[in-house]
Design a protein around this nucleic acid. Structure first.
Lengths: 163, 163
DNA sequence: CAATATTCGTTCGGGCCCGAATTATCGGCT
DNA sequence: AGCCGATAATTCGGGCCCGAACGAATATTG
């Protein structure tokens, strides 16, 4: 939310609108920056690495999860990727149509659907993931190395706080 | 991406798939957790605070930005909120239809559109924002207080890294 | 002052996103 | 065996999301 204006400018405006109501500005700063950071990183990676393969962020995450855990059930992909099964169904259809993965009903339990990468899907990930990680590197390089593990830990704390 | 499996399990799987290729797992952990955290916090706030007013996250951000800066141009809202003008156009139409804000062409520059809250929009934010901030508080409470400013700073570093 | 370039908001097309309803299957219980 | 509650995945409806293309208005340049 704190975009072209500084956080102080925003805070001053908020104070003037709410007339001294008690608010936690540090909490505001954390959630606000959390979203701006996530969106900024996502858009950056989509443009620099994913665009050339015409993949969205979510499609890439799905491919990555399947690549690591195949064969994996639909519910597992959704849990691992952090989106709903409804969302996943559509993305799977897209990726299946492009020939990157396959759906197959489980013989052991007729309710389950098992997902696997095709050879083309594996080739794509083998090429794409190192590039993706290199760019992740470039982005996080701006954080002091000693702070990196703490950054990951703080983010994990936030995840746990919503459970 | 690191969902029900631990990061170590995931890392082991990645190593076995890539056969010793050099990867930066700390960078992976940061971006992965960044997204899981952002989505978790967003979904949590949408369910606990925003759902009762039938507002999406983005709609709330738009109302918040307009509330603080009105009158504000369309391009300003998009920059401040961190989404594209194309996205904003649709959200503005939704919120205008619900009577929370108004669009008005600028007299000084015929290309600009100025956005203002309606009284109903201001009433909504005056009620909703303190509840929203309280929940932000509950979430960030799990971070050691002394780490809060550093958390915000690390996130700002990530934002800057993509510019 | 007219031709040109830039800036702004919107629209369009395709894809993601979720909750709720739906269909199919499984497991337990009688 | 037959029912019944639980569980899986999909579909559906409405909304968000972006880049590209568009048209209107302004700014710039010769």
């Amino acid at each position: 939310m704190a975009g072209q204006h500084t956080l102080n400018e925003t805070e001053n405006e908020v104070v003037s609108r709410l007339g001294g109501l008690h608010l936690d500005y540090e909490a505001m700063a954390v959630t606000s920056n959390l979203f701006r950071a996530a969106n900024a990183v996502r858009n950056h990676l989509e443009r620099t690495v994913l665009a050339k393969s015409d993949l969205t962020w979510t499609a890439f995450v799905v491919l990555w999860v399947v690549w690591i855990w195949e064969p994996i059930e639909t519910r597992g992909i959704a849990a691992e990727g952090g989106f709903s099964k409804a969302t996943l169904s559509g993305v799977l259809t897209t990726l299946e149509g492009r020939g990157f993965l396959t759906r197959e009903r489980s013989a052991a339990d007729g309710r389950l659907v098992l997902v696997n990468l095709t050879p083309a899907g594996r080739r794509l990930m083998k090429k794409l993931f190192p590039e993706f990680n290199q760019e992740e590197c470039n982005i996080t390089r701006h954080i002091t190395t000693s702070d990196l593990p703490q950054a990951a830990q703080i983010l994990r704390d936030l995840i746990r706080a919503t459970e």
